[in-house]
Amino acid sequence: MRETPHAVVHYSEIGLKGGNRPFFERTLAQNILRRVETLGGQGRTERLSGRILVHLEEPWPPSRWTEALSTVFGVAYFAPAYLTSLEMSAIREAILENLPPGPVSSFRISASRDNKAFPLTSPEIQRELGAAVQQKTGWPVRLKGAELDIGVEILRDRAVVYLGRVEGPGGLPVGTSGKVVLLLSGGIDSPVAGYFALKRGCRVIPIHFHSRPFGNWMGSEARAREIVRVLTRYGMEPYLYVVPIGKQQREITVRAPVAYRVILYRRLMMRVATMLARQEGAKAIFTGESLGQVASQTLESLAVVEDVAGLPVLRPLIGLDKLEIIAVAERIGTFSLSLMEGDDCCQFLMPRRVVTHPHLQDVLRAESAVDMNALAQDALKGATRVEV
């Protein structure tokens, strides 16, 4: 295929939104342009029935279009496209000039007509154009499972032609479901949770806790920054909040029962996350917890930690096992980053044995020796916003 300044973008879930559909379409169009601009492109979008056309000032190769649009949530599928007049001769020429040079095992023509005044029906368009391709190449036609699907969309005033399409990530456009914060440890799970929050249309603000001045906190922060940088491709905010809690953790270890340290660490972080979320106008807290994966993720542990959250706590990974989470992390490009060196703040002075099925009254008793609200306020004062 030649380079082209045009692409056609189709969506699916947005089409079910009824009266709110224009809002979702506008947001998707804005996100497409924002992503295009991060790769050096300039242009505009055109919203049509069931699709969005993207027009750039300069043509892009198909690989650049794929890089740009395959990470925009709300996109069902897309294709670099060529615009022609409504003359069948022009449509035929656009197809024949852009056929791949190598052999193709099979092909099909997929035609649709928004313009019902067009003189040919969709099957007639497919037969005429298919015959032209077959005459030039000798390739066989296969209506199901064809290697090359050539799309022709007849609009009111022009036709859109594309050779092959690329699946998008689906979901809802980022920004249509409100703002949330993400507890980003830098491990394997929490970046995947952030990805799923983005996929459901949330604006995601990451919060990273580390144990400065203890342990390899610099490695932990560097790892979190790299993960956020990768997730900006999917629409994550290009910054994170970094909150050192080493001093507060030391206070907990001195005053609280040993077996409850991790629970109290997590309740501290949830308190701080709630305060930061309210400062940012966020409506929920996302975490990467998966039920039963580690000792701190039993139902009882999750409940006593959530007890101090002043906002809904959402856990998109709750029913996934580790292998399923790793598969997503590898696909989105965060898995290798999560293996970078850096100390998890929950491992700070980790006791040999921890409470796995805590009761709230026992947790409150363990906290009674520590002014947790004061520790949370102190930690909040040390929070910094770091641009990536």
Rank of each mutant, 00 (worst) to 15 (best):
Q126A: 12
Q126R: 06
A374T: 07
L120T: 05
R158N: 11
S112G: 12
Y260K: 08
A29L: 06
G138E: 01
R92E: 14
R2T: 07
I332M: 11
A259E: 15
L240G: 04
E46H: 13
F348L: 07
E124L: 04
A273K: 11
A79W: 13
E324Y: 02
I245N: 09
V370M: 10
E226R: 08
L83R: 15
D321R: 01
A303D: 15
R271V: 06
D362I: 02
L264W: 15
L143N: 11
T27R: 15
V160P: 07
R2N: 09
I326L: 07
R331D: 04
T71V: 06
E67M: 06
G201Q: 09
R225N: 11
S70Y: 04
Q126I: 07
W217S: 05
F107K: 04
K381P: 03
A159I: 01
D321V: 03
R271W: 13
Q134A: 13
T45S: 10
P191H: 06
L33Q: 11
R385M: 13
V262A: 09
L39H: 08
L276M: 06
S185E: 06
L314C: 02
E57V: 00
R203V: 00
K247N: 08
E124S: 07
S110Y: 14
T27I: 02
E387F: 12
R203K: 14
A327Y: 05
F348M: 10
S220P: 03
L183T: 04
N20S: 02
D362Y: 14
S220K: 05
L198K: 07
